[in-house]
Simulated assay, not measured.
Amino acid sequence: MRLSAAINSFKSSNLISWKTTGKLQQTLAGCIELSGKTLHSGKVSKVKIWPGFAGEGRYFEFHSNLIPASIDFVRESLLCTTLCKDGYKIRTVEHLLSALEAKGIDNCRIQIQSLDSEDTEVEVPIFDGSANAWVEAIEQVGRKEALDRCGNNVEKLAPYLSEPFYVSRNDSFMVAFPASKVHISCGIDFPKVPAIGCQWFSSAALDDSYEKHIACSRTFCIYEEVEHMCSMGLIKGGSLDNAIVCSAIRGWLNPPLRFPDEPCRHKVLDLIGDLSLFARSGSRGIPMARVISFKVSALSLSPSLSRGERSIESSQIEYKNFS
């Protein structure tokens, strides 16, 4: 099941209201510059993240085109979250946005470029497959209060859920309950891959546990799916250095894992990045809620071996709110 339809439903729902967090919007205290190989194209890209003005939120700049990090600009793509505007695409944004959301960087300009100046699409570097590189870079430069273009600070808002809400299809679902704090629980199930199997992980996503227990979890794939993904032009830059790979027969090919449930923790990492796209005007993206998801593939398609953890069209999802 795809998360994009759920976030769009949240966005248009009268179950959401925006309230102050009692905090001021933040930005980076300095500039971040990182470059590296990308997962799907295999090309090298460079990212510069600049401090931003309060109220302007997070947005990408590619060939002088500005693409807001918003659900409004998400486009269907395989195995990654992609933003698109006026024919220009930014791929694999979820790890970077996850780190920015969790570390409270509400406003910033993300300048990205590939080595080929003719490219109309570009991809965020994958590094080791986790969000560690971004978290460390943010920690190094620090953050500061963001001011708008008139020199004023701006209150930071957050989306509050007024009633329970869920989306579902078959045994895949996402549920959100009103809460005084953000809490995320995520479950995955790969019955044909015993080394992964069924896993659950829960976290108060925006506290210090993000750095210790989520940011360092790496993306994963199923070995038996690699040839098929390559034939589709995907994971050209994939390697045992930027993903953990599991075989349905042989188990993990590049142990040790950083956590026994590292695949599930990485799903939480991706989920935070995708929920961050709900943000607007420097607000927080993750709803003030307890979010529980099971076999939800975020904004991408999942490997077929997950048996049901696949993307579906929004018309196939059942939406409900209940009291």
Score class of each variant (00 low, 15 high):
D128A: 11
I214C: 05
L157F: 09
L24D: 03
F278Y: 09
A137R: 02
L161M: 04
F177S: 02
T82G: 04
Q316N: 09
E318T: 14
K156I: 06
S209M: 12
E262N: 04
G36T: 06
K48Q: 10
E313L: 11
F201P: 00
N65S: 14
N321S: 14
V182H: 10
F62V: 02
A248L: 03
V182K: 10
A54P: 00
A195T: 11
R250T: 09
H213G: 08
D119P: 01
R284Y: 08
L253R: 11
L97H: 05
L206Q: 07
F165P: 05
S13K: 07
R218T: 12
L277F: 06
P191V: 07
S247Q: 09
F60C: 00
A298S: 02
G129K: 10
Q140L: 15
P159C: 12
V47G: 01
S203F: 03
P51D: 06
T21V: 03
F259A: 11
S4I: 14
R218P: 10
E61Q: 11
D241W: 09
I222S: 10
Q199T: 10
K19R: 14
D148Q: 01
Y88I: 09
H40T: 11
I16Y: 05
Q111T: 04
S300Y: 05
A243K: 00
S297V: 15
I188D: 13
F62R: 00
I292K: 03
L83Y: 07
A137V: 05
M229C: 06
I222G: 09
P303R: 09
F278T: 04
K23F: 06
S293P: 00
L79K: 14
T20N: 15
Q113W: 06
L39I: 01
S117D: 15
I67S: 01
Q25K: 02
I16A: 04
N65A: 14
F201E: 06
S304G: 14
D189E: 15
R149N: 07
L301S: 15
V135I: 05
S283H: 04
A176G: 01
A146M: 06
A298H: 00
D241I: 09
W18A: 12
L24T: 07
T82S: 14
T82F: 05
G151Q: 00
H228T: 13
K320M: 08
S4Y: 08
S162C: 07
R149K: 13
P164Y: 08
L275W: 03
R280A: 13
L161Q: 04
S64N: 15
Y166D: 01
G238C: 06
Y166W: 12
I105A: 10
